[in-house]
Design a protein around this nucleic acid. Sequence first.
DNA 1: GGTCAACTTTAGCCAAGACTAAAAAAAAGT
DNA 2: ACTTTTTTTTAGTCTTGGCTAAAGTTGACC
Lengths: 207, 207
Amino acid sequence: MSKTTHREDHLKALYALGHSGDSESEWVSTNQMATHLGVKPPSVTAMVHVLTELGWAEHRPYHGARLTPAGEKLALALVRKHRLWETFLVERLGFEWDEVHDIAEQLEHVDSVALVERLDQYLGHPDVDPHGDPIPKADGTFRNMEGVMPLSELGEFECAVVMGVKANDQTLSAMRDRGLGLGSKLTKNDLVTLPQAWLPQLMVKTS
Amino acid sequence: MSKTTHREDHLKALYALGHSGDSESEWVSTNQMATHLGVKPPSVTAMVHVLTELGWAEHRPYHGARLTPAGEKLALALVRKHRLWETFLVERLGFEWDEVHDIAEQLEHVDSVALVERLDQYLGHPDVDPHGDPIPKADGTFRNMEGVMPLSELGEFECAVVMGVKANDQTLSAMRDRGLGLGSKLTKNDLVTLPQAWLPQLMVKTS
DNA sequence: GGTCAACTTTAGCCAAGACTAAAAAAAAGT
DNA sequence: ACTTTTTTTTAGTCTTGGCTAAAGTTGACC
């Protein structure tokens, strides 16, 4: 991997871990990063220092790291690329949505602004990727995604639609085998028939 | 760049320089490689040793290097990926044919057999890329391209069609400004009105 | 055939990013 | 509050691929 690719991977990890939790805090621990990236903690410390030097992250020793606004902007550009490529792979090349992550992981590091913008246009400026995750626009903002929440947090409902799925490839594959995917309609009954572990992973909207 | 990417770049240089010349010999000098890749000769020597170790090239000290059959197979796979991506960029994303080389250079290093094959299918199994260069098939063979030769070597003719262009991006751009591109029709008159330097670069077929 | 120029290889060094082992700081338990 | 455990950082090493400088080969020109 190039120097740039390594930095981008750490930026993305910082973004993903800082925004994923339900907590408000954006500080990410060294251990979290190391686990997420599949490297040892000292490697993360070293790279965080580099990102700090570049003005993309700030570091509070023995406490954690988080993105600066500049770093966040770069991370969002990466997320945008990743999700646009995933959309391309599924919608145009006919991949299944659980096959595309690793390929998109490589494609997202291709450096060309023109390429991203043309791809976005080619795909018709999609709002969400095949996993239902929103695609940041070129300026880093998201389209409105209100009313979407995990199935586990939904109270009384008659019918809900799957808007996105937050799960690893293996789980995605299992869901697909059960006929579960983007746009699937769910009823109260599914709350008991589906594996309970899936409920927090299914992002739904009542209808 | 990853370990793999570096190796692939040297493989491709070995292929390009070994097959480009009019000469039959496939031996490529260290200096040629260094110039082509934008590195210094000692770096090439070191990488050639690595490729030799991997069984992808053979090295005659102070004489040159060339691909083994195994190395040639790998190089052809890279050429295939490069030209398929160039085709995608021009035909689907609407890039001009003189803008795509650098982007394809990055895309060709993405590692996924399934991706290449799906891309090939998506593009309708094209025989040539936007520069008119033939695209190797998955088994490393080319489709028939007989009757195509540089304009400079064409004798008497009434009308010829441009099948490909072997030029750098700058020249490609200048050609496009003159209305010259894939499929352009040429007459005897063009032999004197076009820049003489272009004649060996224009691959044509009489019609 | 001898000398000189050009090219290639070897030797030795630097940078980036990974690792292990050890030291330092923070958190947890009693 | 003190000790122990966990987490993080520092120190030092390895690998990969680049570089410069020096030594070795080849080949060309008298």
